[in-house]
Design a protein around this nucleic acid. Sequence first.
DNA 1: GACGCGTGGAC
DNA 2: TGTCCAAGCGT
Length: 272
Amino acid sequence: MLQQTPVVRVLPVWNEWLKRWPTPADLAAEPAGEAVRAWGRLGYPRRVLRLHAAAAAIVADHGGKVPDTYPELLGLPGVGSYTAAAVAAFAYGRRETVVDTNIRRVHARLLSGQALPAPALTAAEMRLAAEILPSDQAESVRWNAAVMELGAMVCTARAPKCGLCPVRDSCAWLAAGEPPPSYVPKGQAWHGTDRQVRGAVLAVLRLAEIPVPPDHFRTAPADLGFAAEGVGVPLTALHRLNSAPEQLDRALAGLLADGLAELTDNGYRLPA
DNA sequence: GACGCGTGGAC
DNA sequence: TGTCCAAGCGT
């Protein structure tokens, strides 16, 4: 849930989630569509399919217990290098090189003197993080949490609170006079994109109690708007379903390909 | 290595 | 208001 999603938005969903499915086996016993519904508007819904698949794999291959080693965790769906390291370190107390976006930014500034880390994680960054990780196991766990928290709370992407920073005297970026980023991060477009349409379609499918006929998306945007009222589905996107049929086709095909939707005789629905 | 993938709070 | 960006991953 925390992959690319702020903690404050995850917390309420996470609480309800663990109340409903306390163990991997509980989640694995549910249809994937139920997990997609419970995911709500956290975003990146492919993550929830992978989480569901990971629960199944944990039951099938690990006796229902979340594995406690990096390579085993890495083998689970949706678990990459960051998540495997984070779970091994923070859940099981192991010494792992944890590198998330916060830690990358702290390292870029404090050690490399750059305003922002490279667009993508590099091997050099991983080497550097591994080199400076404390050798003591317990200390390494606290180190990872501390650097991550420093990045999240003080050494933020925009308007870092350098006046509050406990290590500002040893910051290479401050010493260099706060040079600007060497590149301009390009934000993700949203309005009018396939992605927006895809999100709107899935929002409708989450709401729907019965399969949604394909024509319903094209011919009844007002009905979709009515159905979507009060749950934050952007009506502009729903209208766009009617005006950009090729976008709708791509969104539906993509959702089917990803396993986020199924097409039955009666229409589209979340996976059973 | 580049790309596609959601959503909403902050400024 | 529009832009930025958040505990990444898989292809």
